[in-house]
Design a binder for these strands. Structure first.
Lengths: 224, 224
DNA sequence: TTTTAAGTCAATCGACTGATTTAATGGGTG
DNA sequence: CACCCATTAAATCAGTCGATTGACTTAAAA
């Protein structure tokens, strides 16, 4: 019990990882909601059709476990990048601190990867949405980078600031998913590697932050 | 058969519409994949649990029917806007021709609406994705506007052009869904109306098209 | 009025789901 | 060595799924 090396724990941990890998792939390929725990257990080579339930509990718990595994590595990379970024850096560098940890993590997964498509589903499904936001948007390094970025941002009306922050997040999630889809089906990709994709995203998000703000019309708008 | 008023057809058409409305709402609230045809039929007040199957066939057919209903109105609005846009107009005006038809359509649906969230799910679910792209990206007026826009765009490397077009599409779909979510849960929204949301999107997308293009490093990139 | 057929309803089918229960396995420990 | 127990396997449960069926309702057509 207190022994440092327990073969049973090792075996269980290995199957846990194998189930996580399998679930992630099936989720990306067929959709999170469409894949049953049974299918995952069987595809993972577990004779036990209840293996997912035994090791993780509900599907929501499984989804959380997958998300956490990746979030940890992204957080690690973000801390690293944050540490070696000049505190006096400009908007572009702080945007990079938000984008690069994600793209570099995806790059480290090899081809094909599945996490970006998985994440995009979490972001749009009403039942899963909370799982992603709860754990991805509350990490300390993320808040730190956002704080630094905000200090270097041009003066913007509060609602425009909120809107553009949302845009940056949506772009990051869904453009990564899109590239991953292209990679998975062997289609040509806009950029040859994730680093190039990140550069394109940073260009775009930086441009959004610096975009002109068209004022609302005094009484305009369309009817019907 | 040739008579102008057929009570049976009228009744059927009415229940069809009612089923479409109900399905759209449930899809947005609980997720497209998570909602069964049975639940839709029951929620629509049809004693027949197979009403969806009878009127539409498979769930994919139902999803297509919902998407088409909205796509038609959006197409109509885009044609209208295209007709009264100066052929010599600039990037910003052509971007508006892509954004405004969608936001105005959503505005016409009242609050709460469900179509934007529904569309966002179609865009990210691997099994449903084709349904959306097949019918939304092949309309004549859309191709026309994109052509006009391309002629006024700054010179961009082909891969950057493709990447930014993708960004514009993702932003449009997911920012509308996000605003709709906020509206539905009664949360404060960045902009008071859809027209303001469109203006923010047009500002952002126009800025993306005009953003600097950072060249790829000759041999840079990170390992692992 | 009778006929006809579209629309609706109620019951049912096999297949699959998550969950629970019971049995077999096999490595670590006393 | 023999025991123990976490893990894996296997069998089973009630519930829901999409799909099909035939009977009933309704209103236009003959």
């Amino acid at each position: 019990m207190v022994s440092t090396v327990d073969g049973r724990l090792r075996r269980a941990a290995a199957t846990r990882e194998h189930i996580l890998d399998t679930a992630e792939r099936l989720f990306a390929e067929r959709g999170v909601v469409a894949v049953s725990n049974r299918q995952i257990s069987e595809a993972a080579g577990q004779g036990n059709t209840a293996a997912v339930g035994y090791h993780f509990g509900t599907k929501a718990d499984l989804v959380r476990a997958i998300a956490r595994r990746h979030a940890d590595d992204i957080e690690r990379r973000r801390k690293l990048l944050l540490a070696r970024t000049d505190p006096a850096a400009g908007v572009r560098e702080w945007v990079a601190c938000l984008v690069r940890p994600v793209t570099e993590h995806l790059g480290s997964l090899g081809v094909p990867s599945w996490y970006a498509r998985f994440g995009a589903q979490l972001a749009t499904d009403p039942a899963l949405r909370g799982i992603l936001t709860d754990q991805a948007l509350t990490t300390p390094s993320l808040r730190e980078v956002v704080d630094r970025l905000n200090r270097r941002l041009p003066d913007l009306p509060l609602e425009v600031h909120a809107e553009r922050a949302e845009m940056a997040g949506q772009l990051l999630v869904h453009m990564c998913a899109e590239r991953e889809r292209a990679l998975a089906r062997g289609a040509p990709t806009a950029k040859p590697d994730w680093h190039g994709t990140a550069t394109g995203l940073i260009d775009a998000i930086t441009a959004i932050w610096h975009a002109e703000v068209t004022p609302a019309e005094v009484a305009g708008g369309e009817a019907e």
